[in-house]
Design a protein around this nucleic acid. Structure first.
Lengths: 268, 268
DNA sequence: CGCCGCGTTGAAGAAAATCAAAGCACGTGG
DNA sequence: CCACGTGCTTTGATTTTCTTCAACGCGGCG
């Protein structure tokens, strides 16, 4: 059986027992393809599922009454989307794919069952939620207290860093499917100004642009411009997850041994 | 025995079983007082605890290299603080109290134990994390796509709404312990500009100000100015929590019935 | 071909920052 | 009781940053 995308994603955080894998697998419906610029959900819709991004780029946004909009976050393959509506029965933001993409849907109600059955998965979900928050916080700082050029430089560095986690980046060369209008909506700027800032960065030899592709020529320079510190992307979760695994073993031990859970670290 | 503050907080979301209450209570160390403008934790410190706010106002912030700072969120009595560092072993933001305050500390490592022992509490924690995110999202929109007067009006309405949840507000009159400098750092503005916008709102008879107190004279008018929609503050969690209670009963049912919960759910 | 979305550039204008100075409330110590 | 310092608010004048408006080029595609 081929590994589902959520298993691959979770294994990035911690080795899983066979039980955990089966549990995750049982959640997953068949992956669905979305064509460029189609909507996965819109504001106000009932929120019954969350998703993992398997292929392509996705963004969540909020439309304003005056016609403008704010892009809240951008997701790349490996990311989990929609956990934030756990506490809401309607979508508070929209989600659309900006390139051809593949997503897997999971019914939200089954989360509780997962929590009940696997302490490790529960902890990982909680951790994903916390990491999401960290990214939002940094974006908040970006919007509130940085200049246009800092905003753009910071955004580029963050995306590049996040892509490195689950995807390969060669020589700091990344394909950026974001139009300048999209970027503007993400950074709280006008599209025109984004264009000007891009020009600036090009002229300072910090980046290179060729139709949709961006190459970070001088990462150190960009870091200086942006005041970028990747700390907020570097979770340190071993302690918590180890604790979860340990407790799970205790529980299993009490109710009847579960051999699949011994020697966790060696399971593949 | 007096109810601990976290129990009061959690009961706001869902009735708790005696077991749940005991569990929560076991977490709580003695509340600690903080004097105005003292720090609870700072950036980079190890993050071993999370807190509930029992009295007073608190804010989390991020300091920038150039000396400016961004206030990320403001917390009022009843709020849970620090869950976002679940995935990090160092603080990614600072936290300080802006009025005399009382907070209760909880060791972070015990969260896993709580997750293992009570599905309901686990769900509530997850929900709090999700609601936090919703607030951050709205703040993001505020910073990215609203004018100064919209930002301020929106902030006032949000705080007022959030205070109503666990505290009483009479006649839209709220005591705002935020200085204009603090507000500026929260809204991504300069203190001078915040002052000017306050003046505008006063002159339009939308608010009234008398040393530290703000009265919202015309909530409807403010709502119009801000484009405020409280949807993001109105979690709808009954379905999820009911599911959690039901499953918990099933689990307990195996070992011994728990009468404290009269769930009414017709899930498949 | 002609349309449309996207990127680019220039010029003018608006929003908010910065700089500077003064007033006001409050607590502290003489 | 008053003088003084300190932190917060208020106001004006000036400057910076970014937006808005407008126009044009360019490439893809029906």
């Amino acid at each position: 059986m081929e590994k589902s995308c959520i298993i691959k994603h979770f294994e990035h955080y911690s080795p899983l027992t066979e039980d955990d894998k089966l549990l995750l697998d049982s959640l997953e419906k068949s992956p669905r393809e979305y064509r460029k610029n189609t909507s996965v959900w819109t504001q106000g819709e009932p929120s019954n599922h969350f998703y993992t991004v398997s292929k392509g780029w996705v963004y969540s946004y909020r439309n304003m009454e005056d016609g403008s909009r704010q892009i809240l976050d951008v997701y790349v393959p490996g990311d989990v989307v929609g956990l934030r509506e756990f506490a809401f029965n309607k979508r508070i933001t929209g989600l659309t794919v900006m390139s051809d993409a593949v997503l897997c849907a999971f019914p939200k109600t089954r989360l509780t069952e997962v929590f009940a059955e696997s302490l490790l998965l529960c902890s990982i979900f909680f951790m994903i939620s916390a990491t999401d928050q960290a990214i939002l916080l940094e974006r908040l700082v970006n919007l509130g207290r940085r200049s246009a050029r800092q905003k753009l430089a910071h955004f580029l560095l963050e995306i590049s860093k996040r892509l490195q986690k689950t995807n390969v980046i060669i020589n700091n060369h990344l394909t950026l499917p974001l139009t300048q209008t999209l970027l503007a909506d993400a950074l709280g700027l006008s599209a025109v100004h984004v264009n000007r800032v891009f020009k600036e960065l090009r002229e300072e030899n910090l980046i290179e642009q060729t139709n949709g592709h961006v190459q970070l020529l001088d990462v150190e320079g960009l870091r200086e411009v942006a005041g970028f510190d990747a700390g907020y992307l570097e979770e340190n979760i071993e302690a918590m997850l180890q604790q979860a695994r340990q407790m799970q073993r205790k529980i299993n031990g009490a109710g009847g041994a579960d051999p699949a859970d011994l020697g966790i670290l060696e399971t593949s």
